[in-house]
C-alpha cells in the first residue's frame, strides 16, 4: 500500500491529516504490518490534552504492545467509535476507516517538522535495512 501524499508522517509511524486547525491521526501501513493482527486500541478520552511526540495511547496485537505518539500538540476532539468493536480496521484500512482520533491543534504551524510521504518512505527503507 502506498502512503497517501496528503498526509504527514512521524518517525514513530503515525500519520496526521490536517484541515485548518483540525487533525486526524492514525498509524501507518508499515506500523500495522509490523504489529500484525491488531486486537485492541487504547485511545485517550475527548478533551485530553496531547503533547507532540508524547504517548497518547497504544495499539496491541496478541503478543505485542506499541505506543502511539501524538504527531502534534493539541486536544482530543473525537475518538473513532468503531475501533472498540473493530480494531481490525487498523489493519484493513489504516489511512481511512482505521483512523484513531481527531484533534484540535494548538500549533498547526508545527506541521513542517513532520515528514511528507516521500521522506517517510525513504525513512522506512532505512530503518528496515
Amino acid at each position: 500500500m502506498s502512503n497517501p501524499s496528503d498526509l504527514k508522517y512521524t518517525q514513530t509511524h503515525e500519520w496526521i491529516r490536517v484541515e485548518g486547525t483540525k487533525g486526524t491521526v492514525g498509524i501507518t501501513d508499515f506500523a500495522q504490518h509490523e504489529l500484525g493482527d491488531i486486537v485492541f486500541v487504547e485511545a485517550p478520552a475527548p478533551g485530553t490534552s496531547l503533547s507532540a511526540g508524547s504517548p497518547m495511547g497504544s495499539v496491541e496485537s496478541v503478543k505485542a504492545v506499541s505506543e502511539v505518539n501524538a504527531p502534534l500538540s493539541g486536544a482530543v476532539a473525537e475518538v473513532n467509535p468503531e475501533l472498540a468493536d473493530h480494531p481490525e480496521l487498523l489493519n484493513q484500512d489504516p489511512y481511512g476507516k482505521g483512523w484513531i482520533l481527531k484533534m484540535t491543534l494548538s500549533d498547526p504551524g508545527a506541521l513542517g517538522g513532520l515528514m511528507d510521504a516521500a521522506a517517510y518512505e525513504k525513512y522506512v527503507a532505512e530503518v528496515t535495512h
Binding site: 485492541f40 503478543k63 505485542a64 504492545v65
Partner: peptide, 9 residues
Amino acid sequence: LTTREQHIR
C-alpha cells in the same frame, strides 16, 4: 489479554 502481563509489557 496477555499484553497486560510481565512477559510482554
